[in-house]
Amino acid sequence: MTEIETPRVKELTPAELEAIQLERPDFEVKLESLSQWQLAWRRFKKHRLAIVGAVLFFGMCAVAAFGPFLLPYNFYTIPTPDKFVYAGRPPSLAHPFGETGGLQRDVLTLVVNGARLSLLIGVGASIVGATIGAIVGGVAGYFGGWIDNLLMRIVDIMLSLPLLFVILVVSKFLGGGSWYLIMFIFAIFSWPGISRLVRSLFLSLRGEDYVDAARAAGVGDVRIIFRHILPNAMSPIIVAATLSVASVIISEAFVSFLGFGVDVTTPTWGNVLSNSLNFITVGNWWWPLFPGLAIVVTVLGINFMGDGLRDALDPRARE
């Protein structure tokens, strides 16, 4: 470089320089600090679809919880059928969702009562499945080695079995009928997918510096898994579990519809649809329409909410 032009001022000592800089001690930039969950809630609130989804889903949950008490008809009181209208009656003021064929029951009552078990099985199976998946995936990803190998081979096999077939056979095998059994079966078949996800998360988080730091400080394995790694793996698990509620609700309805699910006398959306099948050729569209719409609305709500959660919890994962 060329010679510097002679400056007109004397050179400053470092102390003097510092004095100049200290003239404005207040110019540190303030940074707003929000926790991960506060940030996520902020983003979730801004996600219009997610809010719509949450309203749909929790609205349906409210219907399931309180609806049966508010309806004029009791589910267990079976009306005397009127032989002249064997196919049932279309929606009217007294029966806004119409009446079924055969026993001429109020479709609204069936749909509202069906919501309970359908939602319970969907949510319950997903929570149990996500918990098992998180534990298995966490153990496999954290410890690695032969444990990882063994667990992942089991997962491979579980994932390559045709799911619906096994559910059909197992629900037949175990007698079928009770809702918690069906819930348990769906839980058993929803964990392998989540455990793969959790394993890959743990594999990458295990190498993070803060985990090494914890280990160097003598923190035990269990505490590292639950205090240091799991909170950072939580977001994808929550999203996967939410979306799995939707798929369980649809599969449960289909299994019940085929007659392999919850006992046919108990109300679930799948059972109501299943019963309607004998009458569909007479054109009473209101019978299958409303339980199906209930499924669509619930599942749509969950999918909206799941995508909103994904964007809110893990903004980097967007498309």
């Binding site: 649809i250 309805a253 519809f257 649809l273 569909i280 569209w285 669509v296 599942v299 749509l300």
Partner: peptide, 13 residues
């Protein structure tokens, strides 16, 4: 969000 089997039933109905 559409259960396949329900769509089928509705179309038949």
């Amino acid at each position: 969000s559409f259960p396949t089997f329900w769509l089928g039933i509705m179309l038949i109905t």
